[in-house]
């Protein structure tokens, strides 16, 4: 495959043409924090955590394709500060109470706090009133723990093809919904395949019957599935 040479934090690295900056970094063992990105799903550039500096301008690594001679900066104080602030905003937005979460210890949001050195949240906590929908026989969606990464929406549409999950409302009112807003248990399009559970990065969409810290997920399933489909 044709190779492209780009610079990451001053070092020249090679990657296949057509790759994103995120892929180029990962191919070369360089970590860029991500949350909404998931291998096997189309990228939407929503969480902004993979923000990098590309030829002097800010952009998301997951949605920007490499060009010859591109200069990428990943580890600058400004970018660290920006990523941390974005993460703080996520923690402040809804009611993320790790101590009794079924995903405690297996949560991408929790891991990001460790990775980005978030010792405290410097923005006002919002403490919104949010619901939990346990009407589905096997799954639960707890909006208190949702980060609006839309992985569930994408996996449901692009991989399962069911289009059960959608997004409603605007701003802080924004919510993932099933079948235009009916309870999940009444969502006729849902095939109960459980892919949304596996890709959800936090304890928002989970299996029923799990106790604190018991819920382990396998988001890598999606990429494997895609791989197998491609192989036929």
């Amino acid at each position: 495959m044709e190779q492209v040479v780009i610079q990451i934090d001053g070092n020249e690295v090679r990657t296949a043409r057509g790759n994103t900056v995120l892929e180029a970094a990962r191919d070369n063992g360089i970590r860029i924090p991500t949350l909404c990105h998931l291998d096997g799903l189309p990228d939407i550039g929503a969480c902004r955590l993979c923000m990098v500096e590309i030829d002097g301008r800010f952009g998301t690594a997951c949605t920007t394709r490499v060009r010859d001679g591109m200069k990428v900066r990943i580890n600058t104080d400004e970018l660290h500060e920006m990523r941390r602030t974005v993460l703080e905003l996520l923690f402040a937005e809804r009611n993320h109470v790790c101590s009794f979460c079924v995903s405690n210890g297996h949560c991408e949001l929790q891991d990001l706090a460790c990775e980005l050195g978030m010792d405290s949240v410097r923005v006002p906590y919002r403490y919104p009133t949010l619901s939990l929908d346990a009407t589905h026989p096997r799954f639960i969606i707890d909006h208190n723990r949702c980060v609006m990464c839309a992985r569930c929406v994408r996996v449901c549409a692009e991989v399962e093809g069911a289009h059960t999950w959608g997004i409603a409302f605007r701003g802080t009112q924004v919510r993932v919904i099933t079948d235009l807003g009916v309870d999940w248990g009444n969502a006729e399009t849902c095939t109960s395949c459980g892919k949304c559970v596996q890709v959800c990065p936090t304890g928002a969409i989970v299996l029923k019957g799990q106790a604190t810290a018991e819920m382990e997920k396998h988001p890598e399933l999606v990429a494997e599935l895609e791989e197998r489909r491609r192989a036929g």
Partner: peptide, 10 residues
């Protein structure tokens, strides 16, 4: 200096 897993909530 608290870093990495030291900063785990829960």
């Amino acid at each position: 200096q608290l870093t990495g897993k030291d900063l785990k909530f829960g």
